[in-house]
């Protein structure tokens, strides 16, 4: 007699629950200075942390540095993680701080913007056949304030309040920066569309 396979959704939910339970155990162990548990947390979250750093900095090497720094800072501040938010959200906050801290310390951001401007193609090609310039490149070309807000909101789905908390700006500023980013991106996309 064939055994009925569990319903797919229920199986996914069970696996998700298992991951959450594992994560909570790893956090507790890491808080007790268990480096192996912290490595497990790193493996689980490195993609999202690196992805955020990459989209915020627009530079792979810089993003790797920020990701490393974020996990090192997270290890040192693990005792401050109380579980009020998910570990992933907390890691994102640490990563945002890491990116902002590095940008404040160095002039690389200005250098990066200059390089992007110098290397930007005069007539950007259409990335997906819809007459719009490549969105990722367009995001990279945004000024840092607008880019950070747009990435956190439009790509990662954070609210204005969460974005403001992460970036240390007022909710109103977050709204204004998102509006600015959308307007600038729309203009860029419109330009790309006209040029093709």
């Amino acid at each position: 007699m064939a055994i009925a396979e569990p319903h797919f959704a229920s199986r996914v939910a069970t696996e998700k629950e298992q991951v959450v339970n594992d994560e909570q155990q790893w956090v507790r162990k890491a808080q007790a200075a268990d480096a192996q548990a912290f490595e497990a947390l790193y493996r689980l979250h490195v993609g999202k942390v690196y992805g955020l750093c990459l989209r915020m900095t627009g530079n792979a090497s810089e993003a790797e540095d920020c990701t490393q720094e974020a996990f090192i800072q997270a290890w040192r501040k693990l005792d401050k993680f109380r579980g009020d938010s998910s570990f992933g959200t907390w890691m994102h906050k640490v990563a945002v701080n890491s990116v902002l801290g590095r940008m404040r310390k160095s002039r690389r951001e200005q250098d990066r913007l200059r390089l992007v401007a110098e290397n930007a193609p005069q007539h950007a090609s259409v990335g997906d056949g819809t007459g719009m310039r490549d969105l990722e490149q367009a995001i990279d070309e945004l000024p840092s304030g607008a880019r950070h807000v747009f990435v956190l909101q439009a790509v990662y789905g954070y609210t204005h309040e969460e974005t403001g908390n992460m970036l240390g700006i007022a909710t109103g500023t977050s709204k204004a920066q998102l509006h600015r980013a959308r307007r600038m991106l729309a203009q860029q996309l419109e330009t790309g569309s006209d040029e093709t």
Binding site: V46, K48, Y50, R55, F150, A154, V155, Y156, G157, L185
Partner: peptide
């Protein structure tokens, strides 16, 4: 369309090393 496409961008990106 911009917001829809942005929402579809990959959130999880593995570093090269």
């Amino acid at each position: 369309e911009l917001m829809t496409r942005a929402g579809r961008l990959a959130q999880d990106i593995q570093p090269q090393s």
